[in-house]
Every structure is written in structure tokens, then in C-alpha cells.
Computed example of a mutant assay.
Amino acid sequence: MTMRIVRLGLSRGLVEMRQTLTNGFDVFGYLLPALLLVGTLLLMRDDTIPGTDFSLGAHSLVGSLGMLTAIGGVMTTAQYLAMDREDGTLLRAKATPNGMTGYLIGKIVLVAGVTVIGCVFVLVPGMFLVDGLRLDMAGLLTLLWLAPLAFLATMPLGAVLGSLFDSARTVSVLMLPIIGVTAVSGIFYPITAMPGWLQGVAQMFPMYWLGLGLRSALLPGSLVVAELGDSWRHLETFAVLGVWSVIGLALAPGILRRMARRESGSAVAARRERALSRVTV
């Protein structure tokens, strides 16, 4: 039964990804942040980190990949959930046996797919625009376990947060706190330069460990001196992201099921009425 639910969720996610990638408006929305980041890399391709001869563009490129993954995992998942709640998709999933678990798996596949596409559109041109990136076999192996764990650690969190909102418009209030947590997680600025208490807070969230893993995979080993303990801490990264993944996947389906129990045809119709009234005003 479990494998059947997983297969149905994977199939659902692949179908939704094919649909969104054939929608020009959706594709533009996915690629616009990537294009803006590539433009930024183009402007700083000749700059270096102050006090070093290392490319500022290379460090920013890795930070951009971390930001896209973290924001995509949390915010995109929350937005999809709110949209599906608003248009009745969640209500239909509720009526299907084990539908909420399959729904969550499908959303993980969808969000992971579009996020990876966005990251590729930044990474590929970025490798030609900036110097200093390291992409060897060890780095590739790190990415193979890091990427799935990063998505599993952030997407259920996005689903839980998205369950608090009943429309995609209101989900936008999450953007500022998520960007705040991402900013203090060392993705763009070395965490060692931050106050000790802030370092502790940052390490509680998966964003810090995601950024650390990406830096270990894509930047030269000599830059490890900028990290806490002068170490990439792969074991700790795997453990923390694994704990976030297990907790999220254990809690998110139950939270979504409880949320779905409150859904009804009348509630969906009322939200549609409100949405239409905002459009016509």
C-alpha cells in the first residue's frame, strides 16, 4: 500500500510539472529570478571578496543557489498549497483514500523539479561568467545526497506554513521572515562574522546547513577557514537535514489532513466569491 501511494504521488507530481512547464506565464515566473541573478553575476564577475583574491561572483553564485532552494522549498510549497486550497484541489484530494499523503508527495516532486530547473539556469551560465567554482567528483557526490535532503527538509515546512493561509495572496506575508532566516544563515555572508547567539539561532534551521553543504560542494577547500570550526561538517549537515526531513514528513500529512477536514464545498465557494469580488472591484 505504501509503495502504491508513493507511485501515485510521483505520477501526480510529474503530471503537474509537465503542465506547469507548458504554461508560458509559469515558466516566466520560474526563470525571472534566475535571469536577475545571472545579470547580477555578470556585473560582479571581475570583483573579489575584500581582503582576498577569491571571486565575489563565485561566492555569490553558490549563495544564490542556496537562496533559490530554500525559498523554493518553503515559499513555493506554501503558495501551491494555498492556491490548491482556494480552488478546491485540496478538497478533491481529501475525498481520495490516502489522498493527502499522495498530494504531499506530488507537491514535493513538483517543487523540487521547478526549483532544480531554476538552479540549473543560474549554475550553467554562472560557471562561464565567474572563476573559482569547484565541481569535481567529490562535489557531485555531495550534491547527490544534499539536494534530496534539502528539499525534504524545507518542503514539508512550507506545507505546514501554507496550511495557515487560505489564499495565495495572503501567503506573501511569509516572505519577509523566510528571507530574514535565510539572510542570517550564512548563505551570503560568513556566519563566523555574526554574534555568537545569532550563530546558534541560524544553526537551528535547515537553511544554514543547506548553504554549508553547497559551499563544500562547489567552492575550493581552502575556504573552509571561513566556516565554524574550520570544517565543512558533512556528518552534522546530513544529520540535521535528516532530522528536519523526518519531522516534516511525519507531521505535514497529519496537519494537512486536519486542515482538509475543515474544507467543504461551501468554504471553497465562499473563497471564490471573495476572489471574484476583489477582481471586479
Rank of each mutant, 00 (worst) to 15 (best):
N23L: 11
V130E: 00
L174T: 09
W209T: 02
I71W: 10
G113Q: 04
R92C: 07
V281K: 00
A159I: 08
V74M: 12
G13S: 05
A82W: 08
G118Q: 14
M194S: 14
S266E: 15
R134K: 15
P97L: 03
D47H: 11
S277P: 01
V246P: 05
Q79M: 12
P195L: 06
A93T: 03
A217Q: 04
A70M: 10
G139C: 11
V124C: 00
A267P: 09
F188L: 15
L241M: 10
L133K: 10
G39A: 12
G126V: 11
L256H: 02
K94E: 10
Q199E: 11
L276A: 15
M137K: 03
P148Y: 04
G180M: 10
I179A: 05
F121T: 02
G106R: 01
V281P: 00
L140T: 12
L21I: 12
G213Q: 03
V62M: 08
T96A: 00
M1C: 00
M44P: 08
H59K: 09
L8R: 06
G196A: 09
G229N: 01
M259Q: 02
V111F: 09
A239F: 05
V160E: 08
Y80I: 08
I255Q: 03
V27L: 15
V116E: 03
W197N: 05
M83Q: 13
A250P: 00
I255E: 04
F165K: 06
L241S: 05
G139H: 10
P148Q: 05
S167T: 15
E86A: 15
R12H: 08
D166I: 12
V184E: 12
Y189R: 11
G29T: 12
R4Q: 08
Y80H: 14
T89S: 15
L91H: 11
R85F: 09
V181N: 06
L68H: 07
L164P: 04
L251Q: 03
T20L: 10
L146S: 05
L149Q: 01
L110P: 01
Y208I: 05
V6H: 00
S172W: 06
G196K: 04
L176G: 04
L135N: 07
T96S: 00
L35N: 01
R215F: 06
L10T: 02
L146D: 04
F128R: 01
Q79Y: 11
G9E: 03
L43F: 14
S264A: 10
G265N: 13
A138T: 15
I117C: 03
L256W: 01
G24H: 10
F188N: 13
Y103I: 06
V124F: 05
V15N: 04
G73T: 07
D87G: 05
R7Y: 00
L152Y: 02
Y208E: 02
T142R: 13
A93R: 01
E16T: 07
K94N: 09
A78P: 06
G113F: 09
H59N: 14
L135K: 07
H59E: 11
M175A: 09
S266T: 15
V201G: 04
S216A: 15
I191N: 05
V124L: 11
A150T: 08
F28E: 02
